[in-house]
Simulated assay, not measured.
Amino acid sequence: MSEQLYNDRILEAAKALVPDDRLANPQASVQVTSPLCGSRIRVDLTLDEVGRVKAYGQEVRACALGQSAAAIFKRHAVGRTRDELVQVRDAMEAMLKQGAPPPEGEWAELELLTPARAHKSRHASILLPFKATVKAYDEAAAKTGGG
């Protein structure tokens, strides 16, 4: 672990978070809580007619790592399909838990969370937006008959 856990890049990303950015009329709203630290997120989601995320909102109560992950996630969520959401969730989990490379392309910014690999107690907080969004997607798709 060569890089400090709460480094300037992570703190800057956390500052970009709007902690209460909910949707007025979501198709789905899902709350996920980390049992280890109590961090939580509520994700509001609306899908378009072809199954892409049309609107994304969130309410975040988490440490700087969870806030950073949520802020980055919010910037890239709209326009994503379920497969893309699952792919980035799985890539983040592999990055944190198995030392896999960070996600690439539009999600490359998530690399800044690699110092958390060595801190297993922080993984659940970082993964909150990824897991909650897939759950919200599934709930919205079930309501609209899509997915």
Rank of each mutant, 00 (worst) to 15 (best):
E139H: 00
R122Y: 12
R80V: 00
P102K: 09
E3K: 13
T81Y: 09
A141I: 01
V30E: 06
D20K: 14
A91L: 12
F130A: 02
S2I: 15
A124G: 11
K143N: 05
A100W: 07
A16C: 09
G147Q: 03
H76K: 14
R52K: 15
L112W: 06
P115C: 10
L36W: 06
C37E: 07
P101D: 15
A116G: 07
R122K: 14
K74Q: 15
V78A: 15
G147C: 02
H76F: 15
A13Y: 10
V86W: 02
A132W: 00
M1L: 12
Q87F: 11
L36N: 08
L128F: 04
D48Y: 05
Q87H: 14
A132I: 01
S2L: 12
A69W: 11
S125E: 06
L96T: 04
K54W: 06
R89Y: 09
G79N: 11
K143P: 00
H123F: 05
L36P: 01
R80W: 01
Y56D: 05
P115V: 14
I72V: 15
A55D: 14
L5Y: 08
L17Y: 06
K15T: 08
S121H: 13
A136W: 01
A116H: 09
P103T: 11
A136D: 01
E106C: 02
K135R: 14
E3T: 15
R89D: 10
L23M: 06
T81G: 05
L5S: 08
M1T: 09
E84P: 01
A69R: 07
Q87W: 15
N7H: 15
L110E: 02
L127K: 03
E104P: 02
R80Y: 00
E106A: 12
R75S: 13
H123Y: 05
L96Q: 06
S34L: 03
F73A: 09
T46I: 05
S125L: 04
R80L: 13
G66V: 12
G38V: 10
L112D: 04
P101N: 14
T144A: 15
V50E: 11
L47E: 07
L85A: 04
P129N: 07
E59D: 12
L112S: 07
T144Q: 13
H76G: 03
L45A: 03
R22Y: 01
F130R: 01
A136F: 03
H76M: 12
L85K: 03
R9Y: 15
G51F: 07
M1Y: 11
A62V: 08
R61A: 09
A140D: 00
E106N: 08
T133G: 02
A69C: 09
K131F: 06
V50S: 11
G146W: 10
T133Q: 02
Q98M: 10
V88D: 06
Y137H: 01
E139R: 09
P35Y: 03
S39R: 04
K143E: 13
S2H: 10
M95F: 04
R61K: 11
Q31C: 08
H119V: 09
L96W: 03
M92V: 15
A118L: 11
R82V: 01
A71Y: 07
A116I: 14
L96D: 02
L96R: 03
G145M: 04
L85H: 02
P129I: 02
R122A: 13
A14M: 11
A116N: 09
M92N: 07
R42H: 02
Q27A: 13
R52I: 02
R52G: 12
R9N: 10
